[in-house]
């Protein structure tokens, strides 16, 4: 059985003005794969629906989420205090496919989308697979020390000056990177526009892309048919068939 119930909040810590980390107790026997998500809800009735949030990192006792405040739901989460309770449901969906035959993987994240890549880098690292990360931010970088511990190489990008290794976007040098080195796969998560460009560039370099899609969700488990996305094989449910899709399956147009 998958978990559904209340868990306690262990930590809420802001990383930037509008992005924070939330750590909660990990229930016993819960299986988590990087790229999977949880449906999360505060114990008050409002707002109505659970919010889908990807797992960032995890250990035996804790699960960590990286969340950006965009509306009421995420703002409410940011106001939680230690020992407050939340409803948690998951882990849900299909995460990244960590293939044993991979030797070298590039992980490209943008904004809060860098967070779900953390768990992926951790697991790839354990498998002895070489990982390089391109992390893009619109201003201040966050969690870089942590990423540097779990990935073999980390390169940061920021739209602002003097904040990161490069000014600009991860996609600015992605083509160079992929053409000069043999990557088996690119994992990406972030704004749609970023994932679309990453997907195009990897395709041009014949590198497989795994990306995490987002769609509005109600149930998160495939029952309501609300989170449809278009793929080459027709409509799919992001919550159940994804959120990980291969770049060549999906249509990332707005």
């Amino acid at each position: 059985m998958k978990f559904y119930g209340k868990v306690k909040v262990k930590k809420v810590e802001f990383m930037t003005e509008d992005a924070f980390k939330m750590v909660v107790d990990r229930p016993n026997d819960m299986v988590i794969e990087p790229g999977q998500f949880f449906m999360i809800k505060n114990v008050e009735l409002h707002p109505l629906l659970n919010r889908p949030i990807s797992v960032s990192s995890y250990n035996e006792t804790e699960i960590e989420f990286g969340i950006k405040i965009v509306g009421t739901g995420t703002e409410n989460f940011s106001k939680l205090r230690v020992d407050d309770e939340i409803f948690l449901m998951g882990a849900l969906g299909n995460g990244f496919d960590l293939k044993k035959e991979y030797k070298k993987v590039l992980l490209v994240g943008g904004g809060i989308g860098v967070e779900p890549l953390k768990g992926a880098a951790m697991e790839l690292n354990k498998m002895g697979i070489f990982t390089k990360m391109f992390l893009g931010f619109n201003n201040e970088c966050f969690d870089i020390d942590i990423f540097k511990k779990i990935a073999n190489e980390v390169i940061t990008f920021s739209e602002a000056e003097n904040k990161a290794d490069f000014i600009g976007y991860p996609t600015d040098i992605l083509n160079d990177e992929l053409s000069k080195s043999d990557y088996d796969a690119v994992f990406t998560c972030g704004p749609k526009i970023l994932m679309k460009k990453v997907n195009e560039i990897s395709k041009a370099n014949n590198v497989e892309t795994q990306l995490l899609l987002e769609e509005r969700m109600a149930c998160g488990i495939g029952a309501c048919l609300g989170c449809t996305c278009e793929t080459v094989n027709g409509y799919k449910k992001v919550c159940e068939d994804g959120p990980m899709f291969y770049g060549n399956e999906v249509n990332l147009n707005e």
């Binding site: 109505l48 769609e215 509005r216 309501c224 996305c229 278009e230």
Partner: peptide, 23 residues
């Protein structure tokens, strides 16, 4: 039945608008 194109959900104050289209 394939149902309607995405997006299909929109949350309102304490409500949910859906356009699933009987998939």
């Amino acid at each position: 039945k394939e149902g309607n194109p995405p997006p299909r959900l929109y949350e309102t104050p304490m409500g949910l608008l859906n356009s699933i289209g009987l998939q």
